[in-house]
């Protein structure tokens, strides 16, 4: 049986190439016993429905963001301004860290086994018009931003002076192009280059959140493998993750450069400005989202975040 792996980006993007590497390496390591086939560009559904399908075993594997429809506690992964730097991110999101164990447990409840993390980028804001005081979270900017349907991003946009505007992803590009909204929040340089490059005139790398995707597999499928096969797949998955951690920071810089080469202005944001925004967000956004995910549980997870 050939295992189906779904991901959310087009062919030949970084994740697609890494998954092909995973697929080939796994085939070699298992003597062609574990065969996989990659379905790019959400061909098997958006990440929410693919996560459900992995839980059901209809899709075998996926590498994508965690979907909070199944369990709102997944929002904890995307707490805005939870980590500051790539080094801190690696300490907190990689195997063995408390946050990683929490995520693995949340997936486990969905009948899904977590194999690896695939760090993507620090998020930012893409605009089709000139930014207004991009570093100052207190300034009302009069800019409409398309926000994804997640409370964290809606609050984030509103608390930093933007007009958060909920629109479905499928309508987001044309909405920016025609001017229904002025820009987008919730993704990063890579995502904007992939889906919004023609409407990105300015990019503000304000480190809104740390985006990480997870390589997941149906739990029964994993449990049903022989111990050798489990070891093979886990080993290759670990290499897949380690390669990405080594590459991710440079990849983010490369994506910002690609956006710039395509004609976008990268708006400089200082560390102090990010720190000021982070402070405001921790004070005003975190408590609301913590309330939703269960204050006691959420605070315990946040308390375990390493500096």
């Amino acid at each position: 049986k050939t295992l189906k792996i779904s991901h959310v980006r087009p062919q030949d993007t970084a994740i697609d190439k890494d998954l092909r590497w995973f697929s080939e390496t796994l085939a070699k390591a298992s003597d062609s016993k574990i065969k996989t086939k990659i379905y790019p560009a959400s061909a098997l559904g958006d990440y929410t429905v693919v996560q459900e399908r992995v839980g059901l075993g209809a899709v075998d594997m996926a590498c994508q963001p965690p979907a909070s429809a199944a369990d709102k506690r997944f929002q904890v992964v995307y707490f805005p301004y939870m980590v500051k730097s790539w080094e801190q991110a690696r300490r907190n999101y990689s195997a063995g860290a408390p946050l990683r164990n929490v995520v693995a447990e949340l997936y486990n409840e969905q009948n899904i086994h977590l194999l690896a993390a695939w760090p993507v980028y620090f998020g930012g804001i893409a605009l089709n018009r000139e930014p207004v005081e991009p570093g100052n979270p207190e300034a009302a900017k009069g800019i409409k931003l398309r926000v994804p349907p997640m409370k964290t991003f809606q609050l984030l946009a509103d608390k930093t002076g933007y007009l958060g505007t909920p629109l479905p992803f499928s309508e987001a590009f044309t909405a920016v192009q025609t001017g229904v909204v002025d820009g987008v929040i919730g993704s990063g340089a890579e995502g904007y280059y992939s889906s919004f490059r023609d409407v990105t005139k300015y990019y503000i790398p304000s480190n809104t959140h740390f985006e990480v995707w997870y390589l997941i597999i149906n739990k029964e499928l994993y449990d049903g493998m022989s111990p050798e096969q489990q070891k093979e797949i886990t080993d290759v998955a670990t290499q897949f993750e380690d390669r990405r951690w080594d590459m991710a920071k440079a990849d983010q810089a490369a994506n910002e450069k690609q956006l710039a080469d395509y004609g976008a202005t990268i708006v400089p944001v200082t560390d102090e400005q990010i720190a000021a925004t982070a402070a405001k967000i921790k004070k005003e956004v975190w408590p609301q989202v913590l309330e939703d995910v269960g204050a006691e549980w959420g605070e315990k997870v946040l308390a375990a975040i390493k500096e």
Binding site: L44, G45, D46, T48, V49, E52, R53, L56, G57, A58, V59, P168, S170, E171
Partner: peptide, 18 residues
Amino acid sequence: ATMKGTMVWGFNQLSNPV
């Protein structure tokens, strides 16, 4: 082929705001 998960998928498509 299996219908398992296909209903989930179809329903999700149908809820698409587009």
